[in-house]
Measured scan of single mutants.
Amino acid sequence: MIVFVRFNSSHGFPVEVDSDTSIFQLKEVVAKRQGVPADQLRVIFAGKELRNDWTVQNCDLDQQSIVHIVQRPWRKGQEMNATGGDDPRNAAGGCEREPQSLTRVDLSSSVLPGDSVGLAVILHTDSRKDSPPAGSPAGRSIYNSFYVYCKGPCQRVQPGKLRVQCSTCRQATLTLTQGPSCWDDVLIPNRMSGECQSPHCPGTSAEFFFKCGAHPTSDKETSVALHLIATNSRNITCITCTDVRSPVLVFQCNSRHVICLDCFHLYCVTRLNDRQFVHDPQLGYSLPCVAGCPNSLIKELHHFRILGEEQYNRYQQYGAEECVLQMGGVLCPRPGCGAGLLPEPDQRKVTCEGGNGLGCGFAFCRECKEAYHEGECSAVFEASGTTTQAYRVDERAAEQARWEAASKETIKKTTKPCPRCHVPVEKNGGCMHMKCPQPQCRLEWCWNCGCEWNRVCMGDHWFDV
């Protein structure tokens, strides 16, 4: 396979590697080409510095992935760790964990309700045991953590790749202090920090972006993250068709209702045909949960890209028209025109101005929308079919299609509260000796007794199943 190397943020060049090629071997190839010592090179990928003893497969490097290699003399205490030698983080029983690669970060837990604080980093599902597709590297999971809308060759929703760059020099040479644990960490600028490894760059702020994971991409090709779309790892039924499908869209209502993408497309087109989208002054033209839940309008309007190009163009047109109407304007009634106009409040005669090729020149009556006339309008008909009709959803289907309910059931079956801080902690095999993952707590306690870890627990039921 081919990976592209950008040395000291210059133009990239291809390097041929195998899945079992080590990072140090990659350094040696680059060092020979650039005429520099291999031990002064640092390989940066997806916000993480890659260790010498890791392989291309370990690092989730795919065909035509772009890695950054910078030349920086080692500072005291760094060289041993980078070589894969006596790194205290690798000691058996050590409590410190390697910062998780962005290629394996899962933010789907952050669609849980606000009262489930902490689960994004504490609760991990076991539903990723799908067998890898044919042709994928051994052991590589097909679980997708992110979804994007690819405006490039795909023109559809695709699995996405999370990447990070330095907000100062805009190069992907920043190593994160810690990985993101929720969508806010990724979507809110300057929320996460790190250290830029580019020479002479003092940058410390992280800037995240997404790429389409279905095809090789260049540095400049980015895609918009659709953070309401998630892999259906909890096997929730769709609120409309009641099938279990994946991926799904999880509405931001209190129940976190789930809808499959085909039904979401149908829901949007139906509402669009009836012009029953909601115009929100802050958000724009949007839709609420299909069950009509309060405070559930979709905030990231790129989710409506699921409509496809033709329907999305209609959505944008109707949204612009609705904006004009909300501002007190009118639409030209001549067939084939429909231009938005903003006449004076007491102006009865409205002319669709033909300047700049935008208007048709038609003069019409503001009251009856017919060709302009003197005197009273002959008839004014009330528009028919403008009443909002509820999208029919079966109550039982709505009850079963809740992301929140599956989460709470998982928590109930696989977790116990920490005796000190009461945060839910998952036990997935292993011994009875637990350690609270909350940095402010870190209590060592017994899963069996529910009390602080002691010699009695150690001698009596340390390794009970």
Rank of each mutant, 00 (worst) to 15 (best):
S65Q: 05
D243N: 15
Q78E: 15
G152N: 14
G319Y: 07
V456E: 15
V121S: 15
C169H: 00
G213Q: 07
I69H: 01
G152C: 06
A406K: 14
L261V: 08
P333D: 03
I122G: 15
P437I: 05
N90G: 14
W445N: 01
R334E: 07
N81V: 14
G114H: 13
S233W: 11
P180G: 00
Q347R: 10
S65E: 04
R97Y: 11
P37I: 06
S246H: 05
V17K: 00
S116E: 14
R348P: 05
C212P: 00
P343N: 06
S9Q: 04
P288M: 07
N81I: 14
R51Y: 08
V56P: 02
N254H: 10
Y285W: 13
F146E: 00
R271W: 03
Q197Y: 08
P437F: 06
D62E: 15
H279D: 07
R245S: 10
W183S: 01
G84A: 13
M458N: 15
M458K: 15
T168E: 11
V248S: 02
C241L: 01
Q440R: 09
Q165W: 07
Q40K: 05
S384W: 06
S65L: 03
K435I: 12
E399P: 05
S110K: 12
G359P: 07
L174S: 04
R234D: 05
E321D: 08
I188D: 06
R245E: 04
S116K: 12
N454I: 02
K369H: 08
E322V: 05
H257L: 01
Y285H: 05
L249R: 01
V224K: 13
K129M: 12
S246A: 03
G308Y: 04
P199K: 09
L443H: 14
Y267E: 02
Y143E: 05
C418K: 01
Q158C: 11
T204I: 07
G135E: 14
C457D: 00
V290M: 05
T168V: 09
S384A: 12
Q71P: 05
Q171T: 08
Y372Q: 06
S108I: 06
P288K: 06
T204L: 06
R402E: 08
E96P: 11
T387D: 11
E300G: 09
C201W: 01
G357C: 08
G12K: 07
C337F: 02
V350D: 03
L443G: 05
C169D: 00
L342N: 10
C95E: 15
D185N: 02
K27N: 01
S407R: 11
Q438E: 06
N58M: 15
L107K: 14
N8E: 05
L297N: 06
R245P: 02
H227N: 15
S193W: 10
S109D: 14
D280M: 11
L287V: 12
A363D: 14
L26Y: 00
H373R: 02
Q171R: 12
Y318A: 02
P88H: 06
F381W: 07
V425E: 11
P335R: 06
F13M: 07
N295M: 08
E28G: 05
A214D: 06
I236S: 06
F146P: 00
G354C: 07
E221C: 08
T410L: 07
G85A: 12
V258F: 00
I229E: 00
A46N: 14
H303L: 06
E300M: 05
S407N: 14
C457F: 01
G429K: 14
S255L: 09
R420I: 11
G152E: 13
C360H: 03
C418P: 00
F381Q: 07
N254D: 14
P113F: 07
H302A: 14
F381D: 05
L358Q: 14
C377S: 02
L174N: 02
A398F: 11
C365S: 03
S255F: 09
D274A: 04
V157R: 03
S384Y: 10
Y147G: 01
G359Q: 09
Q171F: 05
W445C: 02
I188S: 12
H302E: 15
K408Q: 11
C368F: 02
L176C: 07
V250Y: 02
L297R: 03
V324Y: 08
V56C: 07
C436T: 00
V258C: 09
Q347N: 11
G361S: 07
M434N: 04
D394W: 04
F146L: 04
P333C: 03
D87I: 12
Y147I: 01
P202N: 13
D346C: 08
S10N: 13
D130M: 10
P88T: 13
S22M: 06
F146D: 01
L102Q: 14
E404C: 08
C377V: 02
I122T: 15
C95L: 15
L187F: 06
F210L: 09
R89D: 14
Q57G: 13
L261I: 10
E79M: 11
I298A: 01
S205K: 14
E309L: 13
V380S: 08
V425R: 05
D243V: 09
V15P: 00
T414K: 10
L26G: 00
K416E: 08
P73E: 10
P343G: 07
W447Q: 05
P159S: 06
V269S: 04
T240P: 01
Q165R: 15
Y372N: 05
W74V: 14
C451I: 15
G355K: 09
G213S: 12
W403F: 07
R245H: 08
V269L: 04
E409A: 08
H422M: 08
L123I: 08
D130F: 09
E444T: 11
G284Q: 04
S110T: 11
C201V: 00
R33L: 06
G179M: 07
Y312A: 04
S9D: 06
G359S: 10
G375Q: 07
